[in-house]
């Protein structure tokens, strides 16, 4: 007898993985609720806390926005693999006939979607409270790219941390130092767009964000199999 299961094209399997994560999130709203609540509170608290000590408040807006998105994103990252620990569902994903890198891509795309949803709701709030310049198309481009880089690196580290007992601590401890270059580049590029500076002044930093995306998404595709094996 021959199996009826086939090795389907990876886009279909990728879609299945993303569909499953989005469906679960729509049902439970665990990640998005936590990320949004944290992000809104962080922006509001930064707004009040920093205004007490400085008049030159607007230059801080890109940094506040990115720190908020990075911390909120970490909440989603830590949940993305903990869902798979329940009932050992990760085994179910590993049993299917495909290259395991598809699981990484599915998880990273899901994490990117959750971070972007958070950004879509929090950035206008940042524009109201901190600097209306945050609503420019260039800033949105930076948010998409920066979130993609963070989702790639974060998913890779979350996969590593998922099998450890202290995963909630392990994830930020490893991820934040790794994501620091991305954070710096994202803040500089966002500030460049907000200040309407000449592109030459910050264009190289945009290139650095793209390089970060390529590096960590490629590393995830290549290494994921080894991270989850056994």
């Amino acid at each position: 007898m021959t199996p009826i299961a086939k090795s389907p094209s990876w886009p279909r399997q990728l879609w299945a993985l993303v569909w499953k994560d989005l469906k679960l999130e729509l049902r439970t709203r665990e990640s998005i609720t936590a990320m949004l609540a944290f992000a809104v509170m962080a922006i509001v608290m930064f707004n009040f806390a920093l205004r007490l000590r400085t008049d030159a408040f607007r230059p801080l807006a890109p940094g506040i926005l990115w720190v908020t998105l990075v911390f909120a994103g970490t909440l989603g990252l830590s949940r993305s693999f903990s869902n798979e620990q329940v009932n050992q569902c990760l085994d179910g994903l590993l049993l299917a006939p495909y290259d395991h890198s598809v699981i990484f891509l599915g998880k990273a795309l899901g994490n990117l979607a959750f971070t972007l949803i958070t950004a879509v709701l929090v950035t206008p709030l940042g524009a109201i409270l901190l600097d209306e310049g945050l609503m420019q198309p260039g800033v949105w481009l930076t948010i998409v790219l920066g979130a993609a880089g963070y989702a790639g690196a974060g998913t890779l580290i979350a996969a590593m941390a998922s099998s450890t007992r202290a995963r909630e601590v392990f994830l930020p401890l490893l991820l934040f130092p790794l994501a620091l270059p991305l954070l710096v580049a994202a803040v500089i590029v966002t500030a460049g767009f907000v200040d309407r500076a000449p592109f030459d002044e910050f264009g190289a930093w945009l290139g650095m964000i793209v390089a970060f995306i390529v590096l960590f998404w490629a590393a995830g595709v290549l290494l994921f199999e080894y991270l989850v094996e056994g």
């Binding site: 299961a5 090795s7 879609w15 179910g92 994903l93 006939p97």
Partner: peptide, 9 residues
């Protein structure tokens, strides 16, 4: 979901 992963549709 599992059927999709196994190429059924």
């Amino acid at each position: 979901f599992y059927g999709w992963l196994y190429g059924l549709r």
